[in-house]
C-alpha cells in the first residue's frame, strides 16, 4: 500500500542559493505557495484590468471574493475592522487557494504543514496583541475581565480568559492543519485501496469500485472543507481582531 504520509514530504526541486552552510531550495511547498499567490494575483488583478462597469464572469468572481471578505469583517469587527482588510483578505485567499490547489492530484498542500498554519495563526495573534496595546494601551487587558462577574470568582474567570486567549493560536492553527492533513490522508488511503484491489482481477475490480466511489465523494467533501477551513480561519481572525479593536466587550 502506498504510504499516505509520503504526500506531505518536503522535496527540494531547484537549488537557488547558499547562505553559509544552509542551502535554499525551491521546494514543492514553496512552488505551491507561489502558485497560490499567483492565482490570487490573476483573480484580483488580471480579471479587473478592464475595470468594467458591468462585470464579466471573472471580474464578478473577484468582486464576490472582495465583498465576501469585506462583509465578514464588517459583520464581526465593524467598520473599524476594515483597516485590517488587506491582512484578512490575504489570509483568506492564500489559505483558500493553498487548500484548493492541494486537492489536485500530484500537488502539494501548503496548509498541511503545522509550521505554515502556526505562522499564520501567530501573525494574527501578534497583530491582535500589538494593535490592541498600541490603540488601547493597558486598557487592552480589560479583554480578560468580563463585565458582571461577582468579585469572588473573578480571579478564576480572568485566569480562564488568559488561558483561552493564549491557546487561541494553537486551536487556530491546529484546526486548519489537522483538517487538511486528515482529509488528504483519507483520500490517499481510499485511493490506495482502489489500486490494491484493482490488482486482484475481476473480483478485485468489483471490490475496487466501492473505494473509488468513496474517493470521488471525499474529493467533493474536501473541496467543501478547503473552502470552509479558509472561511473558518478568516472568520476567527476577524473575531480576534475585534478583540483588539473593542477590548471592553
Amino acid at each position: 500500500m502506498a504510504d499516505p504520509i509520503h504526500q506531505f514530504e518536503i522535496v527540494n526541486l531547484v537549488p537557488l542559493a547558499k547562505i553559509g552552510s544552509t542551502e535554499l531550495h525551491l521546494t514543492n511547498s514553496a512552488l505551491f505557495m507561489i502558485v497560490a499567490v499567483a492565482i490570487t494575483g490573476v483573480l484580483m488583478l488580471g480579471t479587473t484590468a478592464g475595470r468594467q462597469l458591468v462585470p464579466g464572469r471573472l471580474q464578478s468572481m473577484a468582486e464576490v471574493t472582495y465583498e465576501f471578505v469585506a462583509d465578514m469583517i464588517r459583520s464581526t469587527a465593524g467598520e473599524q475592522g476594515m483597516r485590517f482588510f488587506p491582512l484578512v483578505f490575504s489570509l483568506f485567499t492564500f489559505i483558500l487557494f493553498a487548500n484548493l490547489i492541494g486537492i489536485v492530484p500530484y500537488t502539494f498542500t501548503v496548509t498541511s504543514h503545522i509550521v505554515v498554519t502556526a505562522s499564520l495563526a501567530l501573525l494574527v495573534f501578534l497583530t491582535v496583541i500589538v494593535y490592541g496595546l498600541y490603540s488601547h494601551g493597558l486598557g487592552f487587558f480589560r479583554l480578560f475581565v468580563p463585565h458582571g462577574i461577582p468579585g469572588y470568582i473573578l480571579p478564576f474567570v480572568v485566569l480562564i480568559e488568559i488561558v483561552s486567549f493564549l491557546s487561541r493560536p494553537i486551536s487556530h492553527s491546529v484546526r486548519l492543519f489537522a483538517n487538511m492533513l486528515a482529509g488528504h490522508i483519507t483520500l490517499k488511503v481510499f485511493a490506495s485501496f482502489v489500486a490494491g484491489l484493482g490488482t486482484l482481477g475481476a473480483v478485485g475490480w468489483a471490490g475496487a469500485s466501492l473505494p473509488l466511489i468513496m474517493v470521488v465523494a471525499i474529493t467533493a467533501l474536501e473541496i467543501l472543507v478547503a473552502f470552509l477551513q479558509a472561511y473558518v480561519f478568516t472568520l476567527l481572525t476577524c473575531i480576534y481582531l475585534n478583540d483588539a479593536l473593542h477590548p471592553g466587550h
Binding site: I10, T22, L24, H25, T27, S29, A30, M33, I34, V110, H113, V115, V116, S119, L120
Partner: peptide, 8 residues
C-alpha cells in the same frame, strides 16, 4: 521549518 518559513 526554516525553508518553509522563508518561503511563506
Amino acid at each position: 521549518y526554516g525553508s518553509q518559513l522563508i518561503w511563506l
